[in-house]
């Protein structure tokens, strides 16, 4: 019988990609609505607003990265998949920062990006400022990504 450890670890990997990916989808969707509105009136702004629309997409990539590292660490992608319950729970916990922060920060970043896109519609020369405002939200997703990465690699060395 397979140990429950692998189940918890896999749950963590799934949450990382699921929640962060959902957040990014919502965030990119919000920014996309604003981008479509601006391009309807002024198609020449397509490239500018596209860059802004993509900003909330990074959380989904971070979630994927964490999920991928976790899967390779726990042996799902090859090797032995036999890990203890305690280690499985630790992997699950290690995935949570990027899962939760990824979800919430991507939605917030989508709103900031949508407002930035509206700013570009009125003042195209202020695009860099709009990008900075949206990118500030990214800081917290990166911090969560770092914690998740450090934790996952740290767990691998534990003998439990």
């Amino acid at each position: 019988m397979i140990s429950l450890g692998i189940v918890f670890a896999l749950l963590g990997a799934a949450l990382a990609s699921l929640l962060a990916g959902t957040g990014s989808a919502i965030g990119v969707g919000i920014a996309g609505q604003a981008a479509a509105g601006v391009v309807t009136e002024d198609p020449s702004k397509f490239s500018k607003v596209l860059i802004m629309q993509l900003l909330p997409g990074t959380q989904g990539i971070y979630g994927l990265l964490i999920a991928f590292i976790t899967l390779s660490q726990i042996g799902i992608l090859g090797g032995s998949a036999d890990i203890s319950v305690a280690k499985g729970l630790l992997y699950c916990a290690a995935c949570l920062p990027i899962a939760v922060v990824g979800l919430l920060s991507a939605i917030s970043q989508g709103k900031a990006a949508a407002s930035g896109i509206m700013m570009i519609a009125k003042k195209p020369d202020q695009m860099s400022k709009g990008m900075i405002f949206a990118a500030m939200v990214e800081t917290y997703a990166i911090l969560a990504l770092l914690v998740s990465i450090l934790a996952i690699f740290g767990i691998a060395g534990l003998n439990i």
């Binding site: 919000i30 609505q33 604003a34 981008a35 479509a36 509105g37 601006v38 309807t40 009136e41 002024d42 702004k45 949508a114 896109i117 509206m118 700013m119 519609a121 009125k122």
Partner: peptide
């Protein structure tokens, strides 16, 4: 959001 973005452009 879409409507407001169109308004901002206008």
């Amino acid at each position: 959001t879409y409507s407001v973005a169109r308004v901002r452009a206008k």
